Amino acid sequence: MVQKSRNGGVYPGPSGEKKLKVGFVGLDPGAPDSTRDGALLIAGSEAPKRGSILSKPRAGGAGAGKPPKRNAFYRKLQNFLYNVLERPRGWAFIYHAYVFLLVFSCLVLSVFSTIKEYEKSSEGALYILEIVTIVVFGVEYFVRIWAAGCCCRYRGWRGRLKFARKPFCVIDIMVLIASIAVLAAGSQGNVFATSALRSLRFLQILRMIRMDRRGGTWKLLGSVVYAHSKELVTAWYIGFLCLILASFLVYLAEKGENDHFDTYADALWWGLITLTTIGYGDKYPQTWNGRLLAATFTLIGVSFFALPAGILGSGFALKVQEQHRQKHFEKRRNPAAGLIQSAWRFYATNLSRTDLHSTWQYYERTVTVPMYSSQTQTYGASRLIPPLNQLELLRNLKSKSGLAFRKDPPPEPSPSKGSPCRGPLCGCCPGRSSQKVSLKDRVFSSPRGVAAKGKGSPQAQTVRRSPSADQSLEDSPSKVPKSWSFGDRSRARQAFRIKGAASRQNSEEASL
């Protein structure tokens, strides 16, 4: 019999049943779409005989028809080659250093092939080196495509196609095609072959870009420019304004007297070369007005044109410092986490200390709560409330009815002989401070409620009492009544008793 458990639990079988086999339907690529829901599959020993999904071999995947050992070796080799080519560490840098020397040698020989004295001697060596480079780069490109299958997102032919569309893979295939075209054109020995050789060798310069396949330098440059984009835009904007204004004023001053400034384009060329401190010297002002304007705008514009270099330099320094700090933080993070875990385990398992309490023990206690009866409008029989619902239920009951529930009420002091009981919340009678006064009792026990209740009776009109401690106690149990005489010590004692009862009640409510 096959059962599914969608909550991750395992159904224990009877003692008479045989052992169960467990598997996940959602992990089987050969299962139909209706059953690939991630549910837990529990099947008996007879299920494989019936041809269940556990008995079927995997229909898809890279190692579907391969033995386990061969499949493990296949995956291990794939991961190894992918890490060597895409994430070089340790001795893997030897291969990348060899590729760099190969590319650099091709670049140097290409430069010498353009010089007439070394053209014949360098062409033969360059031809052999180009063949070696094409073979190495071609094999490396196909190995990269194959090894990318170790990543989940690059599996299958669609994943390989996605990997081949990456920018550096596109550069690799462009350089490979250009190198093959250069060799094919150079072997023909005609004029067209020579011109094609010179034009296609430009694409071989892109080999130097592939040295940084992970794009660390470009990411660093982009992060620095993005972090200081506002400062760079401000400096370039002001420098551009200085360039336009200086070129226009010098053009007006030199026009008609200097042949170097016949057009405004000549003035812009002079301004750009001057403000960037290049100074070719092919154009320069000759009149005193033009020289004065050139000197003034040079002092202003050079500072703004040189400002981005300082901004980028400081940004690079701060970014490198931040990377070093992050690297040290990552080195200290795992030991710190292990130290915290060890300290907590020692703290939680220390049996010699009796003052340690688990944080979840508070929620494991069961509280007896009286249940409210809507018919009699009273609190009758009580029941046990689950631990997770205790706090919310108690808050709702307290807010609606005004009752305070507590588990172990402390012993109440008995009323003394000299001070009789003053009210239901005086704190001297046991069992009276455990409940709050309802809204109805407060209204009818207050002086205003009594006056409103007995407004029509003649006794209420004739008998008038001065405010005393009895009425103030019933009005607000948490307030201290004001004494009408300064020498009345009994009223002071009563006030301290009320304060103590109120503080105890607040602490009990907070504990609930």
Rank of each mutant, 00 (worst) to 15 (best):
M1K: 02
M1V: 01
M1T: 02
A62V: 03
L81P: 06
H96P: 09
F104S: 05
S113F: 15
T114I: 05
S122L: 09
Y127C: 13
R144Q: 01
R144G: 04
Y154D: 00
G159R: 04
G159V: 02
K162R: 01
D172G: 07
V175L: 00
A185T: 04
G189V: 03
N190S: 10
N190H: 08
A193D: 00
S195C: 05
A196V: 09
R198Q: 00
L203P: 15
Q204R: 12
I205V: 11
L206P: 07
R207W: 14
M208V: 10
R210C: 02
R210H: 12
M211R: 12
D212G: 07
D212E: 08
R214W: 06
R214P: 14
G215R: 10
G215E: 10
T217P: 11
T217N: 12
K219N: 10
G222D: 13
S223P: 14
V225I: 03
H228Q: 00
K230Q: 04
K230M: 08
E231D: 05
A235V: 15
Y237C: 13
I238L: 05
G239R: 03
S247P: 06
L249P: 12
V250G: 11
K255R: 03
N258S: 08
N258Y: 11
D259G: 05
H260P: 08
F261C: 01
T263A: 06
Y264N: 14
A265V: 08
D266G: 09
W269L: 13
G271V: 08
I273N: 09
I278N: 15
G279C: 15
Y280H: 13
G281R: 14
D282N: 15
D282V: 15
P285L: 12
P285H: 13
P285S: 15
G290V: 15
G290D: 15
L292P: 06
A294V: 08
A294G: 05
T296P: 12
G301S: 04
G301D: 09
F304S: 13
F305L: 14
A306P: 01
A309V: 04
I311N: 02
G313E: 00
A317T: 00
E322G: 11
R325G: 12
F329S: 11
K331T: 11
R332G: 11
R333Q: 03
R333W: 10
A337V: 04
A337G: 08
I340M: 04
I340T: 07
Q341H: 15
T349I: 05
N350I: 07
L351F: 03
S352P: 00
D355V: 04
L356V: 02
T359K: 12
T359A: 10
P386S: 03
L388F: 02
P411L: 01
P420L: 02
P430S: 05
